[in-house]
């Protein structure tokens, strides 16, 4: 039991360090990144917010111009969420050369989760153009062992 407990502590520590390094890299990449769109594939990347509660990982995608929930496809695994949301040819009114004359037909985004979740118990709601996913964290099971 005791060595299992220490193993858990080390695993949690390693996971936290890995996550913090990954977040640092992501922040660095964010600074250097290009626009939140790809005119060649006519796809937009949605703004995304991720936070954790003690029991859940909550992800919100901002999806302006997505008309209804039937336009949204979400797939969830234990450590990744992938979003595809259909648009009806949206263009951005601007003289900016990246966006001028381009129509966008979808949002696409893949998100790595900060911890493992139980994908089957994911709940989703779509309101005012914001998609919210609540992903219950995977609960580790512990068994009492009788010492003989």
């Amino acid at each position: 039991m005791s060595s299992e407990y220490i193993g858990d502590v080390i695993e949690r520590f390693m996971r936290r360090v890995t996550r913090e390094i990954r977040e640092m890299i992501e922040r660095f990449e964010e600074e250097l990144r290009g626009p939140l769109c790809d005119p060649s594939t006519q796809c937009l990347e949605p703004l995304t917010e991720i936070f954790e509660t003690p029991d859940e990982v909550v992800i919100r995608f901002d999806l302006p111009y997505v008309r209804d929930k039937d336009s949204i496809q979400v797939s969830v695994s234990e450590d990744t969420v992938t979003l595809y949301a259909r648009l009806e040819g949206v263009s951005i009114r601007t003289g900016h050369i990246v966006y001028r004359g381009v129509k966008f037909f979808a949002y696409r985004k893949s998100v790595r989760l900060p911890c493992e979740v139980d994908p089957e118990r994911t709940r989703a709601r779509f309101k005012d153009g914001v998609l919210e996913l609540r992903l219950p964290k995977k609960v580790k099971k512990y068994y009492s062992i009788r010492v003989e």
């Binding site: 922040r27 600074e31 626009p35 939140l36 703004l47 901002d62 111009y65 009114r93 601007t94 153009g129």
Partner: peptide, 20 residues
Amino acid sequence: AEELRLKLRELMQRTMSALR
């Protein structure tokens, strides 16, 4: 509102870096 939400995504992202 929708147009602004779409148009201001990059500024929002830059702002988040500054807010951190």
